[in-house]
């Protein structure tokens, strides 16, 4: 809460840095930079979505990769049917994610703590194996997209930089939306239910309705990330919803600092950059990454964002 006046500044700096990055890529003549950065931004959207329910709602979803996959398959399935418009891909992804989140959330939210974690994981695995067995779309192998989604009938997203800026605009928009939600009446009930659900009932709220709504919003945001990630990789497979991926999303949120939204964006950025850099150093990079994660969590309860705030 203390950093909210500073958070606007931190967000401005971070998003400005992302906005000028393609110019840097041109100057360095390194087109791969934009590709990595697009991937980072997609994951940042997913981590942001997860932080909304994990950090503010106290709901540790260990199955959020399912929504990445739902978004990605929305692109694959509609594209094959001849529908290439990005807006329609988004709508289909959001609708499918909303239904999946409504059904699985309504059941998962009957549990708490470790059971909630396990039941969200179980639902995501069910989605994973559903797509593994979907042989029309390559089953385990997935499908390669012939082309990226179109925007107003134009194929401009084929350009990596255009795709990058599209994801960036989405991220900034969703970030601002998430900030507004956490400060709204709805956000207060959501946070209150995390703090003390019995107290919220005793003042007249039924936490379940608010938690389920937040769960659906988060799922839909993650599906948007999935749509963009499919476009970025031009390839869709069940690996999008693998439980490792769900774990990575949780790691990004914890890494950046739970419950401040911008931390999730920073966490996704640093986690993926570390992955890139450490992988160059050694094939055993997960070992080093794990070590760094342990140190961050040990020495800063608020993740990386805590380091910028100094000690309490």
């Amino acid at each position: 809460m203390r950093l909210i006046p500073n958070r606007a500044w931190a967000a401005t700096i971070l998003f400005t840095a992302f906005a000028v990055l393609p110019f840097l890529a041109v100057a360095l003549d390194d087109s791969y930079l934009v590709v990595i950065a697009s991937r980072i931004l997609c994951y940042a959207i997913a981590a942001l979505a997860l932080d909304l329910i994990l950090g503010y709602g106290g709901m540790v979803s260990f199955g959020h990769a399912a929504y990445l996959g739902i978004g990605a398959y929305a692109v694959a399935i509609l594209s094959r049917a001849g529908i290439t418009d990005l807006g329609l891909h988004m709508l289909a992804a959001i609708a499918a994610a909303a239904v999946f989140a409504l059904v699985t959330g309504a059941i998962s939210l009957r549990t708490r703590g470790i059971y909630f974690i396990m039941i969200t994981l179980a639902f995501a695995q069910m989605a994973y194996f559903f797509f593994v067995s979907l042989s029309a779309y390559g089953g385990d192998d997935g499908v390669t997209l012939n082309a990226r989604s179109t925007l107003f009938g134009q194929t401009i997203l084929e350009d990596d930089t255009a795709l990058y800026y599209t994801v960036l605009v989405l991220l900034i928009g969703l970030y601002l939306l998430a900030v507004a939600i956490t400060r709204s009446r709805f956000g207060r009930v959501l946070t209150g239910a995390r703090e003390n659900p019995v107290r919220m009932q005793a003042i007249g709220f039924s936490p379940f309705r608010y938690q389920l709504t937040a769960f659906i919003i988060s799922g839909c945001m993650t599906a948007i990330a999935g749509v963009m990630l499919a476009n970025q990789t031009s390839y869709v497979s069940p690996a999008f919803m693998n439980w490792h991926r769900s774990g990575e999303l949780v790691v990004m949120v914890v890494f950046g600092g739970i419950g401040n939204l911008l931390g999730a964006v920073a966490g996704a950025t640093i986690a993926l950059l570390l992955e890139e850099w450490l992988a160059v150093l050694t094939e055993h990079w997960p070992l080093l990454f794990g070590l760094i994660l342990v140190l961050v969590v040990l020495y800063s309860r608020d993740g990386l964002s805590g380091l910028f705030r100094g000690r309490r």
């Binding site: 709204s184 009446r185 709805f186 207060r188």
Partner: peptide, 13 residues
């Protein structure tokens, strides 16, 4: 809790 809907997402409470 007793004054209006709390399904309001945008204005700061």
């Amino acid at each position: 809790a007793r004054s209006g809907s709390s399904f309001r997402f945008f204005s700061p409470v």
